[in-house]
Design a protein around this nucleic acid. Structure first.
Lengths: 191, 191
DNA sequence: ACATTTCGCTACGAGATGTAGCGGAATGGA
DNA sequence: TCCATTCCGCTACATCTCGTAGCGAAATGT
């Protein structure tokens, strides 16, 4: 007994509309009425699939967020720098302007918060691989705290974009990379 | 012609109530009705003084946020560590849970955002003084980008508390301090 | 044909924000 | 003392957004 089938296309249209509005207007300005309108649907169609706005948006992120790039440049320093360049692209993109609103709502929905955090961890995989390789090459002696390294790399970018709201220049990224690499290798390395 | 004077006490009651609710419930749960009730006032009394919720809260912050502590331990490393301990206390306090909501609203009110950022810069003064002393002592050769250092120190804490939502342990703070100090001094220093 | 599930649509309730306005109270000045 | 002015206490209203309820119609499997 399987009744009328779900309109998968409607689902995708809603996700696309949510992504489109998120990137163009930010999370706060993303109203479910607008999402529905842009998807040629009704507001109730949203509630039939997602229990709340924050769930819709996290699903839209999972669907449309560009995948992370892989790399293997041969040295920890340039690997970390490549990873930071990737991060910087994300943190410089316009939809980041609305991220704080999303983060605020995530605090009220543990499941959505876990899903969001999982996405972030998946995006950190290239960085963890780079450290793994550096250990095998002997560039790093002891196994570092990976969540700490993640904070050291992404934290400054997040702080600069969310509080200072300044751009991420190549020099800036190089300094952030250096601060983490020197901590990892325990040496002064090249300037 | 100066009519009935403003009730300064009412103003202070409203600010105290706002601060109290902000620290106990967080920014999102802070409703103007509650603020007024706790101050033995009416919601309209709030709107007569502040144009919006975010302005009220930034004023409450400016009024009630504890001042930063000064220090001079003799070395850049321990100065930075002392500064980080101070920052960690702020970022560990319960009201930080609601900070993201405040940050989100700040994006819609440029004046409030400037006032908020100014508060943050004032709190960074001890760190800048510490670097100044380190330069005079010869621990640092070239003058660093102070906003970068601010991001390197506060960014990881912010990231860990807002995204990972994990505690700030002494070991963690020591690692963050080391990463910045090594970048500043350009040496591997002590472990 | 029949049960079942979804869809399109309208309507409603709850909660918060911000505004309007009235009568009364407190002040300074004429 | 009277008056203009400004603030206070209070009620009411308009708006916006979220989230829920429910109905008739459409689309499937049996």
């Amino acid at each position: 007994m399987s009744g009328r089938p779900r309109d998968r296309d409607l689902e995708l249209r809603l996700l696309s509309a949510a992504w489109s509005l998120l990137t163009s207007q930010g999370y706060d300005a993303l109203k479910l009425t607008r999402v529905a309108a842009q998807a040629n649907a009704h507001r109730t169609d949203v509630y039939r699939r997602w229990p709340s706005k924050v769930r819709l948006v996290t699903d839209a992120l999972a669907e449309h967020l560009p995948p992370v790039s892989e790399f293997d440049t041969g040295s920890l320093h340039s690997d970390i720098r490549a990873y930071l360049d990737d991060l910087a692209a994300s943190w410089s993109s316009p939809w980041i302007d609305g991220l704080v609103g999303l983060l605020a709502d995530l605090r009220h929905d543990i499941d959505a918060e876990l899903a969001f955090r999982k996405m972030g961890e998946r995006r950190g995989q290239p960085m963890r691989n780079a450290i793994e390789r550096a250990i095998e090459r002997g560039e790093i002696n002891e196994v570092p705290d990976l969540s700490l390294i993640g904070d050291l790399l992404e934290g400054p970018l997040m702080h600069r974009r969310m509080i200072g709201r300044q751009p991420l220049t190549p020099d800036y990224l190089e300094a952030v990379a250096l601060s983490a690499v020197r901590l990892l290798t325990g040496t002064a390395v090249d300037a």
